[in-house]
Structure formats: structure tokens, C-alpha cells
Design a protein around this nucleic acid. Structure first.
Length: 207
DNA sequence: ACATGGATGCTT
DNA sequence: AGCATCCATGTC
């Protein structure tokens, strides 16, 4: 029997995703983590969200990816590390976007976590979000609720305080759609590399 | 419901 | 200059 973890008064939600999982390609990981649980352990308490929306960024050949054609800067250099590291960058001055690096070293693929369903630590998330109504249904909303900032970039999602637990069952349909907010792209702009759980009310609202 | 514009600073 | 966004405020 695999090691299981208990959260929410005994509800079993699964085993931890390990390194090998994140060595897969971006589309596979982006689809597979839907229904998984993102856990952030801080001292006694923890924040947990169920992943309901992701996007795959394919790296070298994806002109929407920060790793397109091997572009490497101080900001994105973690993309070239092994799968399982966290890539956070700031945007519009005030927000943070959270990605997980996937695939092998030197292949700058990543999975962008766009939305979560709040599971545990909801009061703490609310406090972080002030008076905002929408807690975690958007890429920069959930990072605000979790208190994610740039200092998390480069950390390991395998061994750190942030990790992913495999969802026990995946009884839902996955919708594929074009990615959001990449008008600057050309060839890959309309590729269906956004994935979300059909019917989830926590999926980000488009426009 | 939909449209617009400001916030705010890092990156190139 | 532009950004893998959010929120408040305006109009219908």
C-alpha cells in the first residue's frame, strides 16, 4: 500500500507526485495534474487547493513560452533545470504567476497553474485576499490567496513546503481550449494547450 | 451583461 | 514598451 495522507478530517486525497512524474512532457503533466491537490505547508497549518485549470508551455518550439528558441535570462533560467522545480515570475507589477518546470534539463517546458478550488485553509486564503470575492479562480488570484511570490522561484516541488498530491479518482471530463493572454504569440497562439475540469465553477472566467 | 482604464514594477 | 492579470467603475 502506498503512503497516503489525510486531510480535512480524514478524507484521503492521495500520494505525493514524485520526480519521475515531472519528467513527462508539458501536455501530459498539465492534463494529469487536473484533480490533484496543491498543498502549501506553513508551520502548523496548510493551504490546499484542487487544481482545476492548467496550461502547457512547450518550450523551444512554442512561441508563447518563455523558453521559446532557447531564450534564457535571469528571470527564466530555472526553466532549463530538471522537471519538478517551481518557476514564479511577476507580472503587471503586482501579481505573480506560478509554473512547474517539466521534462528534462535543458528542455524549458512548464505547466502553468491557472486556477484552484479551495479545499483547506479557506479562512486564511480569505484574509490574504482581503475583501475580494473570487478566492482562487485565476492564476494571480490563487497565488495571492496562497501568499506566493518571486522568492518561491527555483524551489523544488518534490521536497519542499509546496507539493502536489495525486487526486484519488479522476471522474470528470477535461476541456481543451486555446491559452489565455498570449496575443503576442503567432504560430502556437491557437493551440489547445489550456486544460480545465468541465463544469468546475473555479475555472477562471475568460474576459 | 460588457467595456474601459488604472494599478505598478520587473524584464528586455 | 510591454506584460501567461485583477479590480473598480462606468454604461446598457
Amino acid at each position: 500500500m502506498k503512503a497516503m495522507r489525510r486531510v480535512n478530517s480524514g478524507k484521503v486525497i492521495g500520494s505525493r507526485r514524485g520526480r519521475a512524474f515531472f519528467y513527462n512532457d508539458a501536455c501530459f503533466v498539465a492534463k494529469s495534474v487536473l484533480g490533484d491537490f496543491l498543498v502549501f505547508r506553513k508551520g502548523n497549518s496548510r493551504l490546499i487547493g484542487r487544481i482545476v485549470e492548467t496550461e502547457a508551455y512547450l518550450g523551444l518550439k512554442d512561441d508563447a513560452s518563455h523558453g521559446f528558441l532557447g531564450k534564457k535570462t535571469f528571470r527564466n533560467k530555472v526553466l532549463y533545470e530538471k522537471g519538478g522545480l517551481i518557476y514564479v515570475y511577476s507580472i503587471y507589477g503586482i501579481y505573480y504567476c506560478f509554473n512547474v518546470v517539466v521534462s528534462m534539463k535543458e528542455s524549458p517546458q512548464s505547466v502553468f497553474i491557472r486556477a484552484l478550488e479551495p479545499i483547506e485553509g479557506i479562512e486564511a486564503m480569505r484574509e490574504k485576499r482581503n475583501r475580494a470575492k473570487d478566492l482562487t479562480n485565476g492564476p494571480c488570484r490563487w497565488t495571492m490567496a496562497f501568499g506566493i511570490d518571486k522568492s518561491f522561484s527555483g524551489k523544488d516541488i518534490i521536497s519542499g513546503e509546496i507539493f502536489i498530491l495525486k487526486g484519488r479518482k479522476k471522474e470528470f471530463n477535461i476541456v481543451k481550449a486555446p491559452r489565455v493572454g498570449i496575443d503576442y504569440a503567432s504560430d502556437s497562439k491557437d493551440k489547445p494547450w489550456r486544460y480545465y475540469i468541465e463544469g468546475s465553477r473555479w475555472v477562471s472566467k475568460r474576459k
